[in-house]
Design a protein around this nucleic acid. Structure first.
Lengths: 209, 209
DNA sequence: GATTTTGTTAACAATCTTGTTAGCTTACAT
DNA sequence: ATGTAAGCTAACAAGATTGTTAACAAAATC
């Protein structure tokens, strides 16, 4: 019954994730995290020396999920380019839907303290660089085959991410302004997913001119 | 020379705006604001009883700018629907470009404390409601004339806002990840504006099916 | 010109927040 | 079983942060 290996540490991490995602680094309180985890706040400092270190854990974990999410999106198949993009869009949308608070969390923290990002900057930038090169190659091939209109890889990627991510980021404002509860409204999100796909597909479809 | 009517109050407001926009409510320090404004921090509490009240001023001012921005967008003309939307998109983009920190500021604050929004919720919701009704009417007319594909007014509005706003919100992450300085890169923003217009225009153009 | 109101300062106070320490208990290894 | 390490707690400490107060100066009002 008394299997208490490191479950307090886990409880702290779980509570910290909630608190940091909700309120951000500045708004989070270590005492509040400890309370939510059901431990004394001395315990928190026992496992994680400082608030900063605890945050680092959460931030890295979060970043990991985002990178995984993006990797998952680019499961290369041999389908036509447009189908692949449509699939990637859908998967990306679902990843965000499962972790709707991650994007705002990350943007908020990077905006208020860009240095934090420096640690993983190299990883990201080479990763993103390779991804963009591969994507541009595929785009160029598809253009050559007449399957799509020309588009810059960076531009396309930003289009996709903007459309998929922004609705989740603006959700609190939307809900506050309309009084609607979007969590209970799966129709809204299905419609959104379809709309994003449609937008990108129309963007890629060659014009009949 | 000694014309000091209420310039300290103004200095405090200006410094507070900087600080709140940059760091958010939780990250902002009243002492730091006072220092930046060149006044003692007792002075800050003299003009604005509490940090909360000072924030309220800034928040309302900011909201005002955003609403003005949206109003400016919907300067009704008698041009064809698609042209009007293209124009609105461009104006909206420029409004954000002039105030690139406003959207993240608002989203961040509403996310961390939705109650704050309650005050102005009514204003916004009726305003947004009317706007959506008018937009839907125009859409339906344009559809009837065969000028555009059918689209929900809410959907179109969210498309437009997502595309225009998200790049500015994600800018810090983008810069941190790539090392680029987007402020110095006016080409990037021009391309973005064009791309957004193109996306929406293609979305609206009836399909040749 | 006297009085009242407004502006200003320095010092103080209360509370919140993070972090530490000393000592106790439990588990674990030998 | 005994000693050592890890887990845990309560109390404390330092510093930051917001807010107040008393006393004084300047300006406005009469």
């Amino acid at each position: 019954m008394t299997k208490h290996q490191n479950n307090k540490e886990q409880a702290i991490l779980a509570a910290a994730k909630e608190e940091f995602l909700d309120k951000g680094y500045d708004g989070a309180r270590t005492t509040s995290i400890a309370r939510a985890a059901g431990v004394t706040h001395a315990m928190l400092h026992y496992y994680f020396k400082t608030k900063e270190q605890l945050f680092e854990h959460i931030f890295q974990e979060t970043m990991g999920m985002l990178v995984e999410g993006i990797l998952e999106v680019f499961t290369q198949t041999d389908k036509p380019f447009k189908e692949r993009i449509a699939e990637a869009l859908g998967i990306h949308f679902e990843v965000i839907r499962q972790n709707p608070r991650l994007p705002l969390f990350m943007i908020r923290e990077v905006a208020s303290r860009p240095e934090r990002f420096a640690i993983i900057k190299n990883v990201i930038s080479t990763f993103a660089g390779n991804l963009l090169i591969a994507l541009q190659r595929d785009i160029d091939q598809a253009v050559a085959k007449g399957e799509i209109s020309h588009i810059d890889a960076t531009t396309l990627l930003l289009d996709m991410i903007s459309l998929n991510v922004f609705p989740f980021i603006v959700k609190p404002v939307f809900e506050a302004a309309t009084g609607l509860d979007l969590n209970a409204d799966s129709k809204f999100w299905e419609l959104r997913k379809q709309e994003n796909t449609q937008l990108i597909m129309r963007r890629l479809t060659p014009m009949q001119s």
